[in-house]
Write a protein that binds this DNA or RNA. Structure first.
Lengths: 338, 338
DNA sequence: GACTGGCACTTGGCCGGTGAGAGTGCCAAC
DNA sequence: GTTGGCACTCTCACCGGCCAAGTGCCAGTC
């Protein structure tokens, strides 16, 4: 028996099932694909594929549908990369270049990704910890308050207002500004935090409390968990495609989409390249019939964060992967131009 | 015939229907409410209520359900204000007081409102145009770039970086800072914009291009449409309660929740007090079987923005109204303390 | 005159049975 | 290894009947 043909059959089953959403039988499969063999042969192949766990039958007299394992094989070995149409590329590009700031880029990405894939799109905001310090500003406000502004390489601006116990002299502010800038400029935020820690001791003992207070706030800003965890979600209306039964197919997904923690785990580590997790591979109970396609994105070679889509396991993997990859590239480029 | 009893019947119908989600008949209504009359009498009252358009029958042999007009009457004249339990109050309070900044307040409000009402919650970010200038900072960066920071009374911080054609002298920066501060401090943003326009002519002709550039950016920041339009949505998983038919009951709502424009119209003008819009009153086709309960919130007497919930018309209006009102009050207070 | 009990009528939902259709597994033949 | 044929299984859609819930109306009662 030809191994190749059996894989062809699996591919045909996946493609047909994705297209029709219905179990595919041996005859209807041959109507759509020229395999050059008879239904009986296909049936034999199907029986083997089922034994090996790639496909399954909802009930005895129904056609076959792919299992998670089947989709996995399809994604790993059977699918050919679909490329986007020029129109789609242009859509992404024009949509993203209109963005005015980082928040806007993220929001537009979510929208375009959701539209492109007809799935739920999730985009993580560019990580603070992975970007570098572009500028630090220190301003004495009225009274004993100080305004701290940090601008990072990804274009994000963070600010804090610090309430000190004593008033700062202008000289000290100027001094602090220069020294902090010198120590941190161009550094990645975690490294910048380390350098700052060393900086405290270079100041006069009198000034240390104030300096410590400012440096602490700065360090907190650098390792700001909250903004690292920010995530935008869009295209939830596409949940319609997930299935007809609200409670089992849609509600768990909606619930997961509201939990930042879950979303972060889904997007996973900003690994390089595309990641596809199918069904139970998502590691989340309610998402056992969904698949997550994600990709890191970044300016230049630096991975800043991750974006991706959540859709039913019966999705068009090649198209989705192409869209996620393309959006990730364009977002990275847009941020780099910033 | 007693008019009062007919209204009692309507109230009973609304309450029962909200509780059971099923058309209520004359007998089952009497099981739950002591009206002191027989089913036949109730039937007569129902017939009248139906003639007047307050209730309707899904089909001949079914019980009655309230119409939009019926809910409207219920809300306006029949419902008694339910007050929150102390536990609920405490939940709101502790949840909101943990917030670290304005964004956090908004996100927490959405969450608590969604949990409290079991509906979809929407919260508009505090409006820039309604708040006042608390502090303006102007900092010369390297080269010919200038950092502009605006802190408003609602605690929001906005910043812009301006690329000028020529380098600024420190004197001019200092001068600008003082004069701009003097002109705008404590003013509402629209008024501040006006004052700024007058300011330009008080500078030397030589400096005018630079000043104009800075003032323009500042004015744009003051009237920043985008941040005025920001809205947080939460509790979409509660859409389960909207009905069982995804396409007609849930999808339109999901779609509406993704359209900022629609959301803004739903929240409406930040009128004083609670607003309830039922069914077609929402002015949005897809939301004909939903109702929106909204309220302005603000620090002190100043209405900053609006928040509210979107739920099925068959909702517990007294409870929802109480929750929306309470959250609005607490959010206002939290922002004022800021 | 308002309320009530009774009664005939309507109708949607549920149940069980039935027939068609799709698909399978297996077997003998090529 | 492949194919055609055949018996078998199972779901689904359809149909008819029955039941429960609810109504509207009418004659009687307080």
């Amino acid at each position: 028996m030809s191994d190749d043909r059996r894989l062809d059959v699996l591919r045909a089953i996946v493609e047909d099932y994705v297209a029709t959403q219905e179990p595919v039988g041996s005859r209807s499969l041959l109507d759509r694909h020229q395999l050059g063999v008879s239904p009986a042969t296909v049936r034999n192949d199907m029986a083997v594929l089922e034994d090996e766990g790639y496909i399954t039958q909802p009930h005895t007299s129904a056609g076959r549908i792919p299992t998670d394992k089947g989709y996995r094989l399809f994604v790993d070995r059977l699918s050919t990369v679909k490329s986007l149409t020029p129109a789609e590329r242009r859509a992404i590009e024009t949509f993203l270049t209109g963005a005015v700031d980082v928040d806007d880029v993220v929001q537009r990405s979510v929208k375009v990704l959701a539209q492109l894939t007809n799935q739920v799109a999730i985009v993580q905001y560019p990580s603070l910890t992975r970007s570098t310090v572009r500028h630090i500003e220190l301003v004495a406000l009225e009274g004993s308050r100080v305004l701290l502004v940090v601008i990072t390489s990804s274009g994000r601006v963070e600010q804090r207002i610090i309430e000190l116990v004593e008033t700062l002299t202008d000289d000290l502010v100027a001094d602090l500004r220069t020294r902090i800038t010198r120590a941190t400029m161009g550094e990645r935020l975690p490294e910048a935090s380390l350098k700052l820690a060393d900086l405290i001791e270079t100041f006069a003992v009198n000034d240390r409390p104030v300096v410590t207070s400012i440096v602490t706030t700065l360090t907190q800003t650098f390792s700001n968990e909250r903004s690292d965890e920010r995530i935008a979600v869009g295209g939830t209306a596409n949940l319609a495609r997930f299935g007809s039964d609200f409670d089992t197919a849609i509600k768990p997904v909606l619930e997961a989409m509201e939990e930042q923690v879950v979303l972060l785990r889904l997007l996973g580590e900003a690994t390089t390249g595309l990641s596809v997790r199918i069904g139970t591979e998502t590691g989340h109970e309610g998402l056992s019939s969904t698949a997550v396609v994600s990709s890191a994105y970044g300016a230049d070679d630096l991975a800043l964060a991750t974006l991706g889509t959540v859709g039913p396991t019966r999705m068009d993997y090649p198209a989705t992967m192409a869209a996620v990859g393309a959006v990730a590239r364009y977002v990275g480029r847009t941020l780099a131009d910033n």
